[in-house]
């Protein structure tokens, strides 16, 4: 305790080192996105000699690039809304009631979070082709509910169980009907839980590629799949590829900033 300054520095050593380890590859991607392809291939340098935004301009002016971002945003938003809306009443039921087969249903729902996407890729393709939804945003949004609804239920149920039962009972005595109680009283109480659940649905739908790529060809192609095409087709334009990568990191960074106060509890699925 006699040298607090030194102790403080020693204490933050590990997190600082870890953050440097996390940021280095991202920094490398950022510098590459600011270089021309010629500079990348000709000389090795730790920072761009002549920083240029040319790679970003390519992305923002080429519809096959920027439509990928729009497509991803559309199906991710649809999926988040569907998953949270379906999970809310279900989570309430698991949190408040016992009913026929509740534990089995809960575990069965969770098993879908554990299902390897590779198992589902081909059957999804056949299912959504046969009902005429192939290459639509709603197909990807529905397919992603496979792992997002179970996750949302799990998170929301954790947050809901933290709300005392007495609140429900008091509301019913006061003459609230269930829907009115749920919307007016209960939902505001678990607002942070809903935010965290929405964040996780956003996150897992945003980062998933295998299913999203299998279910789309042109009209709903996600940005992640546009990037793989560029790798295989040219394999050369590293600058544009790096710029596209940086642009896929931004939405995540923005969303994290909004939920930063709840993120730790959210990652523990509301059960701390």
């Amino acid at each position: 305790m006699n040298a607090p300054g030194k102790k403080l520095r020693a204490k933050y050593f590990a997190p600082t080192l870890y953050i440097i380890f996390l940021m280095t590859p991202i920094y490398w991607l950022l510098t590459m996105s600011l270089k021309t392809n010629q500079e990348i291939l000709s000389a090795f340098s730790l920072w761009p000699k002549n920083p240029t935004l040319a790679n970003y301009i390519v992305i923002f002016t080429d519809a096959s690039w920027y439509s990928g971002y729009i497509n991803s945003m559309i199906y991710v938003s649809m999926n988040t809304v569907i998953s949270v809306m379906a999970a809310l009443p279900a989570a309430y039921a698991f949190s408040r009631h016992r009913f026929l087969g509740d534990k089995h249903i809960f575990f069965w729902l969770l098993t879908n979070r554990m299902a390897p996407p590779a198992v589902f890729a081909l059957p999804f393709f056949q299912l959504y082709s046969s009902i005429g939804l192939f290459d639509t945003h709603i197909a990807v949004a529905l397919a992603h509910t496979l792992f997002n609804i179970p996750l949302a239920i799990w998170i929301l149920e954790g947050f809901m169980s933290g709300v005392p039962r007495e609140i429900d009972e008091t509301a019913y005595i006061d003459g609230y009907s269930f829907p009115k109680f749920f919307v007016k009283i209960f939902t505001p109480l678990i607002a942070s839980g809903i935010g965290v659940a929405a964040f996780f649905c956003f996150m897992f739908s945003w980062v998933e590629l295998l299913i999203a790529r299998t279910l789309t060809s042109v009209a709903a192609k996600p940005i992640a799949a546009v990037m793989t095409r560029t790798v295989s087709a040219s394999g050369l334009d590293w600058g544009v590829l790096a710029a596209a990568g940086i642009l896929t990191i931004l939405p995540g960074a923005l969303v994290i900033w909004f939920v930063r106060h709840h993120i730790a509890r959210g990652f523990a699925l509301g059960r701390v």
Partner: peptide, 22 residues
């Protein structure tokens, strides 16, 4: 928390691309 959570929100194939380049 925000800096540490960042890699978790990068699309998985972009994670692959980052490391492929790096």
């Amino acid at each position: 928390l925000v800096l540490m959570a960042l890699p978790l929100l990068i699309p998985w194939n972009v994670v692959g691309t980052i490391w492929q380049i790096f």
